[in-house]
Design a protein around this nucleic acid. Sequence first.
DNA 1: AAGTGGTCTAGACCACGTC
DNA 2: ACGTGGTCTAGACCACTTG
Lengths: 242, 242
Amino acid sequence: MEKLKKNRRTYLILRDVIAEKIASGFYQANQRLPSERELAEELQTTRLTLRDALFQLEIEGKVFRMDRRGWYVSGKRLSFDIGLDKGFMTNVSDQGYIPTTELIFCEEEAASGMLAEALNITKGDPVYHIQRKRSINNRPVLIEDIYLDLSRYPGLHHANLDSSLSVVLADIYGIKVKYSDIQITPIAFNDLHAKSLHVSPGTPGTLITRTSYDADCKVMEFDQEYWLSDVLRVELRTSNKY
Amino acid sequence: MEKLKKNRRTYLILRDVIAEKIASGFYQANQRLPSERELAEELQTTRLTLRDALFQLEIEGKVFRMDRRGWYVSGKRLSFDIGLDKGFMTNVSDQGYIPTTELIFCEEEAASGMLAEALNITKGDPVYHIQRKRSINNRPVLIEDIYLDLSRYPGLHHANLDSSLSVVLADIYGIKVKYSDIQITPIAFNDLHAKSLHVSPGTPGTLITRTSYDADCKVMEFDQEYWLSDVLRVELRTSNKY
DNA sequence: AAGTGGTCTAGACCACGTC
DNA sequence: ACGTGGTCTAGACCACTTG
């Protein structure tokens, strides 16, 4: 590797060099890259400049980090059709990946003002808060917070929450989603959520917020999904309004 | 400003200090922050660490950069309801901001393979390519590429493309959008698009791709919008499927 | 012309993951 | 215990924007 020019966007050149090695298959999907010090030496540059190049590739979704574990080559993005209510597990396995869900906690708590508004209840009312971590091929890719109006779902504590919640609500309570209001916001992971996903605080994320309504147009659940941006592509078809 | 501890995520502390000054109104929306060197001195740190803090705030959407011009405090995000086909101009002005559109170019070109597929025509067929830059309160926030099957829209060259394209298509050709297929993908700005928006290459962006269909379910247009992530929140309601 | 942000150098120590 | 990535220092020059 010959010496590159100084002070002239070296990191963009390095970015392209590494991107090319990924495109050509020299580095394979999900493979760990050599250590930063090795790569920097191989490319005749400093660690700092090399890291700039890797950050670029990270934002582009071509590599990802596991905090303090190293850099890995990203796989294909998950295509997430938000109009179908397919659920995470089905959606991921349909695309040939292995999904897993881990329940982090579920507990009763008093509704905050924001939650009360979202669930259309009174502040301080009991809500059921479920937090789950979901992975694709063993890589954690999203943290999900689900909030339910506890008075609507007596005995929910006993249900198995590792799989699809909508199946549970349909089977036990006979309640199905009619439609949902959804917000998609680009965000940065905060320190807590970042830690859960083994990434650095500030990693680019996509927050998908969903308020689901049942056949009576009553709020069924309020849901916040914090996705790592590089794994995701959202798809949808607008409804026909004519 | 007292001296902070070494080697201990100083930049996260600095991030919070600056975020607090923004939240408290000490720094107002759209105001330019002091120069990096000034801020670093004021906060008793190095420019590099200070920049780490600013990058964090950038990913969080709390500040933004104009390339080589400095750091600015972000305003409220634009809420973009993707189900309504309100159009950029109306949408922005409804939320109290001033929208502008600048035509960068429009030209006839031969369809690439990808385009031919999207427009359901044959590779090499003539397409009309329109590129526009759109701004909110004078800040450029998105680059838009529109592709049209030229054989469907004879004489399109003469139309005024500064305003709404859908209005043009409806008024002149009597064609209206029935539904659209949409993809939302987190991306990084490439060097070209970054330059157009006065941001650095690699700035986080959101690509919204839209294929619009008319009443006969024929493709009307294919559209790629490259948004700066920090200005945007996408909203939608899933269609009722029961 | 001055000042700014953008990039880069050549180191260093720390906390954590892995063995 | 070792190596890794994460963070930080104290500079420097360049390209560009602004006055």
